[in-house]
Design a protein around this nucleic acid. Structure first.
Length: 469
DNA sequence: AACCTCACG
DNA sequence: ACGTACGTGAGGTTC
């Protein structure tokens, strides 16, 4: 058996050379990450031989009930990630360079206007200098402080100042455009220009998160903008190769479904079984109106609440997100947990168990150690509590999509899986295969894991990434 | 290297 | 008086 760190790299080299992958293999880095994803209790020892590290970590995988996750999820996924990285995704450099020109022009126009209003030139990218202009020169009242006490110029603060000065809107515009240009458009076009095959080859980090999710770097392909017009233009640069289309499948509300299932909450389970609009239902129950009388606003607040519960949100955060008073927020959260009582019970048991064992785990035994739960510091303790509440949900959703990737690749070994973005898979498939393949992949994804509620997958087909987003 | 900001799920 | 919503990666400035 091949035992080593970073086996994905070795597999990539073999793949590029057209060679077979040696099996079985055992990745030490992945194993250590599984027993302790943040390395708070266990870390590998570089002074030890691979065999010594193997003996230690293999015993730990067994002790912690992680063998199934390791052998049936992570090792098979490792190979799929290697395939995705080597395969890459095609991008049209012309779209990106055209976009850069557009953005450069708009950014310059905003800069000129801002300097004129400010009465002087300054570095717009410096929060410190921007703060001096806004708060000292223009005498705008600061709205929030950063954690080190500086006057915040973040988007949320700026939004609150919008009505007080015409400069704010321009700064928000500048920030948006500069971000898109400097973080996405320019680096992506450079990457494509330097690329031998005109494709972007990210690196997926299999051991990069505390919850079991994947992450992506160089470039991060999991945080490409979506939504705004410019964002769509960026995504439209990503295209399938000749005679292919993009096929995107995303899990609908996977984390809420996972929460309904693992908590066993009967009301939430029933809602998903009947395929009821969960946010509208929540609004109806929490705001105490018939579901037909739920307004857009109410549904939106309920959505915030549903997501907030997954993150362990308290009344303060809910109040800030919605504009409710603390007392109102407190009441609505109380009402939420009266309606979805088993969710509260599940959370409380989870924290109890964390205090006893030092870790939280998801249904598959995936673990996260959270020593902060024993901290006398209220803030550290609270952070551990929220992370604990979130991990079994985010972590099981991560397992589900990984299992789906494995099953899809098992049934379609040559399928062009190119992106995996937390609850979404994007494939590059020959147009002629689409009719056959799309429904089957959807079925595989919906059947990847048995929950107490159905898994629902939405399917999109298009000629670029914007069309399937 | 720390900090601030901001893109995504 | 505040810091209070999870998980990421990256660009820019400042020290």
């Amino acid at each position: 058996m091949l035992i080593d760190f970073n086996i994905k790299q070795k597999i990539k080299e073999l793949k590029k050379a057209g060679k077979k992958i040696p099996k079985p293999y055992f990745d030490l880095g992945v194993a250590f990450w599984l027993i302790d994803p943040e390395g708070v209790n266990y870390v590998s020892d570089s002074k030890k031989t691979n065999q010594e590290n193997y003996e230690f970590v293999a015993a730990k995988l067994k002790e912690f009930g992680l063998e199934k996750v390791f052998y049936e999820i992570e090792m098979p996924v490792l190979e799929i990630l290697a395939d995705m990285e080597v395969r890459g995704v095609m991008a049209e450099v012309k779209v990106l360079t055209g976009l850069k020109k557009e953005l450069d022009k708009e950014i310059e126009e905003a800069v000129v206007k801002i300097y004129k209003i400010a009465g002087r030139e300054f570095n717009l990218n410096s929060p410190k200098q921007l703060g001096e202009i806004l708060f000292d020169v223009l005498k705008i009242k600061p709205k929030r402080k950063t954690k080190t006490g500086a006057r915040s110029t973040g988007a949320e603060s700026l939004e609150a100042m919008k009505d007080e000065h015409e400069i704010i809107e321009l700064i928000l515009k500048y920030r948006e455009l500069f971000k898109l240009n400097s973080t996405y458009v320019i680096p992506l076009s450079q990457i494509v220009e330097a690329s031998k095959d005109k494709r972007i080859h990210t690196t997926f980090l299999q051991t990069g998160t505390a919850t079991g999710r994947l992450s992506s770097e160089n470039p991060n392909i999991q945080n490409i903008p979506t939504g705004t017009e410019y964002a769509k233009k960026i995504r439209s640069a990503f295209v399938p190769k000749k005679d292919c289309v993009f096929l995107s499948l995303d899990y609908s509300q996977i984390e809420l479904r996972v929460m309904a299932s693992v908590s066993g909450d009967p009301n939430m389970i029933e809602a998903f079984k009947k395929d009821i609009d969960i946010h509208a239902l929540t609004a109806s129950r929490v705001f105490n109106v018939p579901i037909e009388q739920v307004t857009k606003d109410m549904r939106h607040h309920a959505k915030t609440l549903n997501f907030g519960v997954i993150y362990g949100m308290g009344p303060q955060a809910f109040a800030r997100a919605t504009g409710f008073t603390f007392e109102q927020a407190f009441q609505f959260i109380e009402e939420y947990f009266r309606e979805f009582y088993e969710v509260k019970i599940w959370q409380d048991k989870l924290i109890d168990k964390l205090k006893q064992t030092g870790y939280v785990e998801n249904l598959n035994g995936r673990k996260r150690w959270l020593p902060g739960i024993l901290s006398p510091n209220q803030r550290v303790y609270s952070e551990a509590t929220r992370a604990a509440i979130n991990m079994p949900i985010q972590g099981l959703a991560a397992d589900i999509i990984k299992l789906a990737m494995i099953e899809v690749k098992k049934q379609f070994p040559d399928i062009g899986l190119i992106l995996s973005i937390h609850d979404e898979l994007v494939f590059e498939v020959p147009s002629v295969m689409l009719k056959d393949v799309a429904p089957r992949i959807k079925n595989i994804m919906e059947g990847a894991y048995e929950l107490k509620v159905p898994l629902k997958v939405d399917v999109l087909v298009g000629k670029n990434w914007a069309e399937v987003s």
